[in-house]
Nucleic acid binder design. Structure first.
Lengths: 237, 237
DNA sequence: CACTGTGAATGCATTCACAGCG
DNA sequence: CGCTGTGAATGCATTCACAGTG
């Protein structure tokens, strides 16, 4: 029996999988791979939670959105769970083709990051608006001109676009990605982009991370009598 | 998972400021600066919301956590609102000292990013474990050895630490940051770090972004064209 | 009027707590 | 027992809707 989409079945009812849970899915896969290397056969929700700094209830609830993988009294069989989750995440036995717009520092950093390829994300296209950069080779790929983006995308069957251009140029690149047929975009520019509802967009905003911290730094200082727990945030994007 | 310190006063009552709202605060400041350049005096919650892809109700609710800045029938006076929010965010008339651990591609990208300095975040220390990199200069700063981290931190009064080292090394660096006295850390390594409750930690996980997208790509059925959702379908963490 | 500020309603996400199973 | 799976309870966050104001 296969699961068909972001839902689970309970008494004939279908429930959406929470967005937040999907993000944790990725963490589960990572942590399980790590644990597997230590040669263990089973993990309990408790132990898995300790590693990831979640609660055990959350782990059980999350995993259970995707199916019933556990065994009462024993926990989850790591190998089996890992295989199931990887398939559900869509990173098993499959690659995703990625195009990068913006061959600057950040773009280069992403190209160099080994983790992507390990998970099946393969960069196939790089473009940059700067003629100086066109023709250069980064990580074995030649930087093309932005004008060629749409053509290249179709030729390489791109699924995902990554934007690391300056924010003024971000919407333009985004539109090209959309016309070129991507179904998902990760935007690193500090701009709010418009996409049709059929395209999923995620924003990663580094400055925002620092600023949110500054907010708390600015006020944590003056403690008006700590009732209960002090300030701390553990947060996964 | 989250303990916040932001409060607002309403009839002598204090209410917590939602974490999600603090993240948007940063977006408000950015957008207001942009709008100001167009020479406008006032914005309505409606217009501001359109730019940021939020709802007007959300904008009003958010701003109102921090005070009453609006004028009935007119909207918000941009200049005034901007000044107030910047101060609240903790980025006005003040700099924050940042230390970077890991002078690789990503670290260099962060160092090169102009947006930080504009907002008052100043890199003062870079360290790397690789002796090959020690002594090099990046963006006018000399890379020091990791051994010197704690001493350098105290000398430069570091407030915030940024981690761009491989995940195996992340916890070690994190501990040093904590001993060196930071009150906030941004972690780019795909590892779950342990920090005392007095230190705020944020994780930025690029692989996770792609994987979460892959999940949805894999099942094709688009759940909903959310617009303006926070750390969710359409936004940054 | 056009707008804000805000209770109340709704909608998500997390945690509790326990029945039931191996 | 120890541990899962899951209703029910709680806790956040967003949206509605409208009284109140310049």
């Amino acid at each position: 029996m296969t699961r068909t989409n972001g839902m689970r079945r309970t008494n004939g009812l279908r429930r959406q999988i929470p967005e937040a849970c999907v993000e944790r899915l990725s963490l589960y896969v990572r942590e399980l791979s790590r644990i597997r290397r230590q040669g263990n056969g089973f993990v309990s929700s408790r132990r898995l939670a300790q590693h990831l700094r979640f609660t055990d209830a959350q782990v059980r609830r999350d995993l259970n959105y995707f199916g019933q993988f556990g065994t009462s009294g024993r926990g989850y069989e790591i190998q089996r769970l890992l295989a199931a989750l990887s398939r559900i995440l869509g990173i098993q036995g499959r690659t995703w083709h990625v195009a990068l717009a913006g061959a600057g520092n950040l773009g280069s950093a992403l190209l160099a990051y080994r983790g992507f390829r390990e998970r099946g994300f393969v960069f196939r296209v790089i473009v940059d608006a700067d003629p100086q950069k066109v023709g250069r080779t980064i990580q074995g790929l030649t930087v093309a001109s932005s004008d060629e983006l749409e053509a290249l995308m179709r030729r390489h069957r791109i699924h995902i676009g990554i934007i690391t251009v300056p924010s003024e140029a971000a919407q333009g690149v985004c539109d090209r990605f959309v016309r070129g047929g991507v179904r998902a975009i990760v935007n690193f520019a500090p701009a709010r982009l418009d996409v049709p509802p059929s395209v999923r967009l995620r924003n990663v905003d580094m400055a925002l991370e620092l600023e949110a911290l500054a907010f708390y730094l600015g006020r944590d200082r003056l403690p008006a009598g700590r009732h209960g727990a002090p300030a701390a945030a553990q947060d996964s994007p």
